[in-house]
Design a protein around this nucleic acid. Sequence first.
RNA 1: GGCCCCAUCAUCUAAUGGUUAGGAUUCAAGGUUUUCAUCCUUGCCAUAGGGGUUCGAAUCCCCUUGGGGUCACCA
Length: 465
Amino acid sequence: MIITRFAPSPTGYLHIGGLRTALLSYLWARRNGGKFVLRIEDTDQSRNNEEAAQAILNAFEWMGLEYDGEITYQSQRGDIYKQYLQQLLDEGKAYYCYMSREELDALREKQTANKERPRYDGRYRDFDGTPPEGIEPVIRIKAPQEGTITVNDGIKGDITFNVDDILDDFIIARSDGAPTYNFVVTIDDALMGINEVIRGDDHLSNTPKQMVVYKALGLDLPKFYHVPMIHNQQGKKLSKRDGATDVMAYKEMGYLPEALLNFLVRLGWSHGDQEIFSMEEMKSLFDPADINKSASIYNVEKLDWLNAHYIKNLDNATLATLLESHDIYLLSHDKREIILDAIKERAKTLQEMAKLIKEILDTPTEYDPKAMKKAFKGEAVSVLESFIDKLQSTPDLHLPIDYHAVMEAVVNDLGIGFGKIGQPLRVALVGKLAGPGLDNIMAIIGVEETTKRVENVIAAIGEAT
RNA sequence: GGCCCCAUCAUCUAAUGGUUAGGAUUCAAGGUUUUCAUCCUUGCCAUAGGGGUUCGAAUCCCCUUGGGGUCACCA
């Protein structure tokens, strides 16, 4: 059975790049009927906090990503790590190193000055003398000192490192006894039965180290997939300065989870010419082996297009529910269907939808001067007056077609084109020259409010002249 | 700087030795729409450069250039 994982360190919110590797791991597990587990890497006490872990969970919930089993917290597994640390010590595969930070720094400085690679020189590797006083030792692992290590990556193929270029006896436990990242990741992945690791390729250089730990512990290696990074417009790794990187910020901006997931799965992966993927399709089609080797640039325009697509295809009840977090309450509004049908093809985000709905529901408080100038030349005022008369004298106005009939009657009576009434009426209703169909707007706000808005604009024209 | 990775339209990608290099987003034009948006049609735009191998190269090899990642008692 394939078991994948997502292992964030809770130092803040869930990052969009993290969400992507989580999604890919999730999809691959689901496609294979395997498991997708979650591990919180909270070993660094000073940087972690509970809110951050909760924020990650919230984002998972919003996205609809379900993990299997219980969450593993590294902070609760100290005893396990100690046990394996002791095992390596007992087997002579790791050792105490009494070098002080100052000595280490000095060594590194000297090496850098000599244009050598900064590395630990192994001075305590075979030490059996009396340890110096007053030094709390770190534990280092005996890493191979020659030869090569090859990572068999499922995306990039075989990558061979020269041990001499990249390794030294790296620290697996700090002087306070706390185990380090490359050590605990290995133990956890192995103990949790994770056999397929899908992670960002910024981890590629960690992999040889982790392989050293796997080997020392006699554990089976998982299959690795190192997914290329997401870059910003400048071609650099996406960072906080690049705008929205917090997954939950997308909720606030009015993006739908399905749009964001669809967008992320298509970054670096494709299936023929298909652009739209439902969750079910992703689960049955995604394969990490098909991921591109190159980094991809994060491009909001495609996300906007996808989001608009998903909004258009959402049913109105769901839409109304979602809009409540954007201060629009339509669930029991009697014109709900007309409103949403009129708006949902015009917005890229829920936030934008909310704005457009407010523009219809709220009486305009100001008029775009350019629109006024353009709409109110010639007989516009008297056309509007005729329209109001007709409106008042027509009974049973409910649906958009009813209002449309009134407009039609007026243009026929006066022998004018639709534009002659459409433009001034539009300015009266929403204050500008763009927006949904006039018949829809009037059906939503009703005869009384329509009349009021027309009277308002006529009054405003009177003031202006 | 050492090591590693990468390279097809502006962007996301397809084409696993033979295609007029395809699709999508963006942009532009036209149509539909009283307007705007949607939608439909059309258009613009790419194999980084140089050498090989081959009847034939975006595809395989080498070099160059460019970009990225990583080098902690962080994760």
